[in-house]
Design a protein around this nucleic acid. Structure first.
Lengths: 109, 109
DNA sequence: ACGCTAATAACGATACTGTGTATTATCGTT
DNA sequence: AACGATAATACACAGTATCGTTATTAGCGT
């Protein structure tokens, strides 16, 4: 069974963007019918469409799944991510890539 | 098609917990075979099993989907901050200092 | 050589996705 | 009341994927 709260989050996010089901469906190349089933929890997208929806709705995965996650990281808004997220996208990427590299190096010790 | 990076994140998370595929499969009532296909990107769980896995692995959705999300650099940052916090104190400081420097440089542009 | 772990394959039953088409419900507006 | 826009819902249907079962193979450390 599909947790209804997930569909509700999809719907909520679409409305936040001021999109109709039809507008979203055209944007993503899906049918309004399908969008509707997902928002009602009558169906759940598989990998490809799930990513399509998350990105099309310009949201995170946690924003959609938050209700069903028991180990949600909601609370933790780390200083690091706050600061980084205020930067231009290219800078964000550059820093994150660098950090990833540094973590990898540190771990391999 | 299924993005391989998702499976890799699943695997990475399992290993972070020090679990074997068998240990995880028993914990969640799944087969090791199935776990393996997911980690390899040969299959993608539908709603119920996806939630089961996320919670069983004590992780967030962003930690698994971070690689395929285009509007969630925050997610990636939170993953990194988690990884950073698992490092020795000296390494943490070293990395955070470096990040601080990079943020400062990026801001001064 | 052995045991532990994981990758992989083949098979099958079942279940679901996603579209197409069409009808009905629920709004707000005129 | 009537209308248009939006959404819910039903139904059929092909196509495809999940998930389990079983079994084989590979890698890796001891």
């Amino acid at each position: 069974m599909i947790d209804k709260r997930i569909g509700r989050r999809f719907k909520q996010r679409r409305e936040e963007l001021g999109l109709t089901q039809e507008a979203l469906s055209e944007k993503l190349g899906l049918t309004t019918n399908y969008i509707s089933t997902i928002e009602r929890g009558a169906s759940f997208p598989r990998c490809e469409k799930l990513i399509l929806l998350l990105n099309g709705l310009e949201t995170s995965a946690d924003a959609i799944f938050c209700d069903v996650l028991t180990h949600s990281t909601k609370a933790k808004a780390s200083i690091l991510s706050e600061q980084i997220s205020s930067l231009p996208n290219e800078e964000q990427q550059r820093i994150l890539d660098m950090v990833e590299l540094m973590v990898k190096q540190a771990k391999s010790k």
